[in-house]
């Protein structure tokens, strides 16, 4: 949730066609920092893929996110135009919708992974339980009869 609210807070003022913010073509300090951050992340992603820390698919996903962030921060109007083109009133709304969809996909991926980990944990616990089974000595040993 924190991510979502900060994301909206960061992007919303940029994407609204507010003349006060868009009078000059000079980049604001805010834009410079964010673009530099996006560029740094993009380089880090490329390095990570080359060094084999991330798979190509993960790298590509991150690269797309970094480039999209850089482009939208340096051209604040672009999201608003895109939103209008899609028939969504404001750029902020479009971002909200994208954020919700991305989060839902994220939740589903985490949930699937959680299920997988649970399953693996059960198999591990089962393996250990069978390995360390206690055979009580008070009853006659049925083991011998079924020895394999």
């Amino acid at each position: 949730m924190i991510q979502l609210t900060t994301l909206i807070a960061e992007i919303a003022p940029l994407s609204t066609p507010d003349p006060a913010h868009q009078t000059s073509q000079h980049a604001t300090l805010f834009q410079i920092i964010l673009v530099a951050g996006a560029a740094f992340l993009l380089i880090a992603t490329i390095v990570a893929v080359i060094k084999g820390w991330a798979t190509r698919r993960e790298g590509l996903l991150w690269a797309v996110v970094c480039v999209a962030a850089g482009v939208t921060v340096s051209n604040p109007g672009i999201i608003g135009k895109l939103a209008k083109g899609l028939g969504i009133g404001r750029g902020a709304d479009l971002l909200l919708y994208i954020a919700v969809v991305v989060m839902l996909i994220g939740f589903l991926m985490v949930y699937t992974r959680l299920r997988q980990i649970r399953r693996e944990m059960t198999l591990l616990v089962r393996e250990l339980a069978i390995r360390d089974a206690v055979t009580s000595s008070q009853t006659d040993t049925p083991d011998g009869r079924h020895a394999t």
């Binding site: 944990m121 059960t122 616990v125 089962r126 250990l128 339980a129 069978i130 360390d132 089974a133 206690v134 055979t135 009580s136 009853t139 049925p142």
Partner: peptide, 23 residues
């Protein structure tokens, strides 16, 4: 009981039955 197995952590009844059946 003649055989006692122990799940190191609680995994639920379905998991426990499957462990017993496998054993």
């Amino acid at each position: 009981a003649s055989f006692v197995l122990r799940h190191a952590v609680n995994r639920g009844q379905g998991a426990a039955l499957q462990t017993g059946i496998a054993f």
